[in-house]
Design a protein around this nucleic acid. Sequence first.
DNA 1: ACGGGTATGACC
DNA 2: TGGTCATAC
Length: 677
Amino acid sequence: MPVARPETSDARVIAHVDMDCFYVQVEQRKQPELRGLPTAVVQYNEWQGGALIAVSYEARGCGVKRSMRGEEAKAACPEIQLVQVPVARGKADLNTYRSAGSEVVSILAQSGKCERASIDEVYLDLTDAAESMLADAPPESLESIDEEALKSHILGMTREDGDDFKESVRDWICRKDADRRDKLLGCGIIIVAELRKQVLKETEFSCSAGIAHNKMLAKLASGMNKPAQQTVVPYAAVQELLSSLPIKKMKQLGGKLGTSLQTDLGIDTVGDLLQFSETKLQEHYGVNTGTWLWNIARGISGEEVQGRLLPKSHGSGKTFPGPRALRSLSNVQHWLNQLSEELYERLSSDLEQNKRIASTLTLHASAFRSKDSDSHKKFPSKSCPLRYGVTKIQEDAFNLFQAALREYMGPFGTKPQGNKKETWRITGLSVSASKIVDIPSGTSSIMRYFQSQSTIPSCSASGCPQEHVAVTPSASESCSEQKSAEAAMPEEDITVTYTSPDLDNSYRDSDMVPEKFPCQDVVSCLSTGAMEFPTQSGSNRDTPTKTIGRKTNNSKEKNGGMPSIVDIFKNYSATPQSKQETQEDSTVSLTSKRGNLSSSTSHSSEVNQEVEDRRDTEWGYKVGEIDQSVFDELPYEIQREYRSLLRPNKRPNAGKSKGGDGSASSSIAHYFPPLKR
DNA sequence: ACGGGTATGACC
DNA sequence: TGGTCATAC
C-alpha cells in the first residue's frame, strides 16, 4: 500500500522511461524481418495458442489485445506474427528480456540517478543534469533544439491555430519568462530526447517517456503518447490533468483500493478526491494511505528515485493450471529442481557480474485440496537461509515445500477423516532468492583472507552421502512416500495422498527450516564446485553473453575438476582496488554488446573495453555462505566486516534471540552469535 | 480453475 | 522477523 511522502521543496526533474511493447521489440531485433509487421509474443502454452504477453502497435491497430489467446489474436488479425517466449527447463525463460532491459538501464544510468522499476521501465532523477544545463547552456541560448525534443507533447500547451507545432514547443522550451520549474522541465525535455535517441541508436529499442516534477506524474505522462514519444507535465497543467483522470489510471489505484474509492466514496476521477478532507480519507483507509490519497489528488508525491539498477530479488516460478496441477511429491520435486536450477543460474550470474550474494531462499506455492469445503486455504510460504549450490537449493526448496505442505494440510494432517484420504493439488510453484547484498571488493580483508588460503581441503572429496543430505527430521519422517515417489518418473502423475506425521514431531518441527547439512564446511560453502558458471553452451546461447573478460578459461583442475572459490579470487587479485563510486548501492551489470554470439567466450569486446576495465577493478570474491564454525575461526576483523556487510544498520547480534537453537541456522546471514576474540 | 512469470512494498 | 497481501507490467 502506498505511503505518503512529503514533496521536497525544490522542484525536481523526474523522467519515467517506458519501453514500447518491449518483448516484441526484443524479438524483432532478433528477427528483423518481423519489424513493421503486426507481431505478438506468446508464452508457450498448448492451450488455445498460448497467452499474449506483448503486442506490437501494428497488431494493436487491428484489435489485438494483451491477454488474448494466440488463437483469438489470429482471428482478429490473421497476418499476425506470433513469436514464442524462449523455453528452458520446461518453463518460460525471460533471460533475454532481462538482459535487453539491462542494456537500456546501463545507458540511462549515465545521466543521473536511475531506478530500474521493472524489466522495461526506468525512473530517472534528472534534477542535477537539468540544473547544470540551465546554468551552463540554457535552452534559450542554444541555436537549435533537438528535433526529437521538438516532438514532445507538452500538456496544457495552448497551440494557436495554424501554428507550427514544433515552433510552439520550441517557444515553450526556450521561453525566457518561464518560471524556474518550467525551465528545468525544458532542460529535462532536451536531456530525455537525447537519451531516447541514444537508447535507440545503441539498442535499437524505441521507448516513450514522461517528464515531470515527480515520479507519479512522470509515470502518468509516459503512457500518454506511445510509442516512441515523450510527454511533459508542467506544473501548471497538473490540476487539469488530474481533474478528469479516472481514478483507476493512477498507479496503485488500479486494484482494490481504486475500486473501493469508486464504490464506497463515489470517486471516479482523481479530481473527485479533492472534495475529501485528509482526515476523512484517513478514516477510511488509514493514516498513511489517507494522506497519500490526499496528496496525489493534488499531484504531490515526494517519492524519490531510488538509485538501484539491479533487482532486489530473483525468482523462478511456474503455474500448473487446472488439469495440470501437480499431485505427487515426486512431480513437485521434479519441478522444484527445474526452478531451482534456473534460480541458481541467475544467482551465479548475479554473483559473477555484480558481486552480490543472496541470503534467503523462499518457496511459494499455491494449492487446493479437492475434498474440502475450505479448499482454497492459502498454501504458506516458507523461507530459509540460502546456500549456494544447485543441489543445495533444490534440497532446501523441497524441504521447504514439505514443511509448508504439512502446515497446509493441517497439524492433524488429513488423516482419514472417514475413509477418504485428503489429496492436494499444486497449481503453482516458485522459488526466489532475496536479501541480496553487495560484496565490497578490492581492499576487503575478507578477500585478502581468502587469497591467503592457497589451498582448501575439499569436502566433496570426502563425500557427502546423499542420505545425510536429506531433510529436516520431521520432513523426512513425515514423508514416507518420498522414497518410492522419487523412483517414479517425474513426468508421470502418481497420486500420492498426504498422511500426517505423528503428532509429536509435527508440532515440534512445524516451523523449522532445513537443518545444517553435515558436510557444510568451508569448502562446501566456498567451493564453486557446485557453482558452475554459465557458459556459452546450451540454453544460454541466445542470451547476449554476460561473460566478463577473461574469466571462463580459468582453472577447473582443482577440486575434482571444478573451479573453487580460490581460483576465482586469484583471477581478480591482480587488480585489487576499491570499488568505484557508484550511485547509491549498486552498479549495473553491463552486459556485453549484443550480437557476436559465436566468439564471445574468451574475449571482451573492444567496444566495452573501458567498461570492463572498470569492472575488473570492482571484482571481488564470492562468498555464498560461511558455516558458523568456520566463521568463528575467522579473524576478528573479518567477522566484524562480514557482519556489517550483512547487517549494515544494526549492531551485531542486536536482534532478540528467537529462543531457538541458533546453531540450526546454517548461514551467518541469519545467525550472529556474540563475537569471539 | 489461465494473464504467466516476476518483482516491489506495506503491514502485522 | 517471516509471511501475507496488494499491485503492476
